[in-house]
Design a protein around this nucleic acid. Structure first.
Lengths: 340, 340
DNA sequence: AATTGGTTCTGAAACGTTACGGTTACCCGA
DNA sequence: TCGGGTAACCGTAACGTTTCAGAACCAATT
């Protein structure tokens, strides 16, 4: 009987000593955590689902910050953090079923992801981050739509009317090409859909027909992707005065491509990002800063604090428009003042 | 009977359908992963122990790379990655006991860490990284001593004789101050001890009495720590011509401090790092590049491939001396040629 | 001396699964 | 018609823990 380990007060010191002594003599390695979990119905760990190769979590600065916050919340609660290996390519859902956790945090997965469905079917609390309104699921995020709208308004005020957009993947199937308005509207990634919608609303309001604005999509979220997307846009329309990117990583790639072409930023081309990752500061990027660390921490807190069966709790964090040195008036704006 | 879920071949499609149907009707959420783990004696997850606040793993670039590699190995094997919350300040060992994992990777903990002891007592395979020779434990690392020796030789060749050293914490107790030779020798962090030993050997061989070389220790591994340590050294001896830092992070801090003082690098002061983190490239840092990602991947592979009970396996990875723009001859080296 | 109260100890049940062996049912050839 | 073999099905034990009820014990009170 291993009350000796957990309830030292329930038995006499003498017996405890004797039990522990014989246990050691018999080579007893201490209570088995899995059996304990089975009995107590507590795994002592929070599961994290992200629909990317696991290692992606350590490659994307925004994801890293989110994880840092989540880890903070977990260690405050004495919980482990169990990263679930959910390969996006394969629809192999078993990892979700195998994870012995007390709850899940789901970060930025498409709304039609089978892994997400599997998580929701499990009888454990779940918190989603950067995710659309899911019936009866706690959620933390930002107002992507209005934040991106603000950024668009900034560009519009500067005088930009001919812009190109670089966005992250919109769906689970790869499309490294232009994205039609229908595809934008049908995007399965809430964050991307909302940001594009914010842009569309602002530009439409400024009498720029959104359907004429080229939007290029990239499946991989890397600087190289941002660069190639920028190239694709500038090849299509060299008259573009601003590139709006839905993430800082993509924007950093766009900056690289601009440099390669000898385009001066912001004189010849304005570039904007989104997220406010550490590397955005040195680059002077105009972007929307969002509190990724707080987002992760909030998600973790929501989960470990336990969810009462009432209506789902929603945490919406503030964002901040950061005006850097990568945006300015387009150089042909004066001409336009005196134009026809 | 939930053979229906796992052994579709053992029963007729008809029965399977019927079982699954009633299961759904009864609201059966699928096999419980913890009970399954208990029965099969497999948790499907790898535990990671690092003796820092969990969130540290996402703040230190070197740790991030290690984790990325580890995550790669885990997802290849379809294993989860369970981050164990081991608070270094508190000796609370329970998290190690509660973790339902099939094995542990232990990364860069002091050799007297109670968490490490707890891991080794558990009857699961263990791989340590950046750790000293542990009897019968698989291990992956680099030759810190000779790599640092090479770096020291480079400085010595350039003519540096009066140097200062900034190192990471040497022990679990905080000492943000000079570290005596005894303290260096008794360091509980293998990596730091080996690097200092490498420096000592090289400088001693160059007839620079190691005990006269000031070594400043910092508990927190941050850029700010590196800066304040550099300041402490330069305050003590403004004649120092080179600062050797045992990590790139600390070296980046030293560069900041040099700039603050108006010291030109490398003309007035040489600075070296260790690790080869991404930020070292842009900074032009002279450093030792080590394959952190590979290290993590190797550790993961060793673990999931299973350890045969023979002698422990040891993987030693190669390092590369990277000569950047932060080292040069000390400006008084010519004088010395014609000196007494 | 018997009842009460409290403490320490012991035994058995339950957590939910999988592995395994036994039983039934069925089909085919003799 | 019967025997043998295979496929499908079913029941039970075991994984190692915790919990909880009750037994045993001792001391103190009536």
């Amino acid at each position: 009987m291993s009350n000796a380990y957990n309830r030292p007060d329930q038995l006499s010191p003498e017996l405890r000593r004797r039990v522990l002594e014989t246990a050691r003599r018999l080579g007893y390695p201490g209570p088995d955590p899995v059996a304990r979990s089975l009995r107590t119905r507590k795994a002592g760990a929070v599961g994290l689902l992200l629909t990317e190769n696991l290692s992606y979590a350590f490659r994307d600065p925004a994801a890293i910050s989110f994880l840092e916050g989540l880890a903070l919340a977990c260690e405050d609660a004495g919980q482990g953090l169990h990263l679930v290996p959910a390969n996006p390519e394969r629809e192999d859902i078993t990892a979700v079923h195998r994870a012995g956790v007390d709850g899940f945090v789901v970060y930025s997965v498409p709304d039609d992801d089978p892994h997400l469905a599997a998580v929701l079917e499990r009888p454990v609390p779940t918190v989603v981050a950067d995710q659309p309104n899911l019936a009866n699921v706690d959620r933390v995020g930002i107002d992507d739509r209005s934040a991106m709208g603000q950024l668009a308004d900034h560009l519009i005020e500067l005088g930009h009317r001919r812009v190109g957009v670089v966005c992250m993947r919109l769906s689970r199937n790869r499309n490294d090409d232009f994205a039609s308005v229908e595809r934008q509207r049908a995007a399965h990634f809430h964050v991307q859909r909302a940001r594009l919608a914010g842009l569309a609303a602002s530009f439409d309001a400024a009498k720029v027909d959104w359907s004429s604005v080229p939007v290029v999509e990239r499946f991989d979220h890397t600087i190289a992707s941002g660069a190639s997307a920028a190239a694709q846009l500038l090849d299509r329309d060299p008259q573009i005065t601003a590139l709006v990117c839905t993430s800082d990583i993509l924007a950093l790639g766009a900056l690289e491509e601009a440099k390669r072409r000898g385009l001066r930023v912001p004189q010849d081309l304005s570039v904007t990002g989104f997220d406010g990752v550490p590397a955005a500061g040195p680059a002077g990027l105009t972007t929307v800063r969002q509190p990724m660390l707080e987002k992760g921490r909030a998600a973790g807190k929501l989960l470990v604090e336990g969810t009462e069966p009432g209506r789902p709790r929603v945490v919406t964090l503030d964002t901040e428009l950061v005006l850097g040195g990568t945006t300015a008036k387009p150089h042909n704006v004066e001409e336009r003042w005196f134009g026809p």
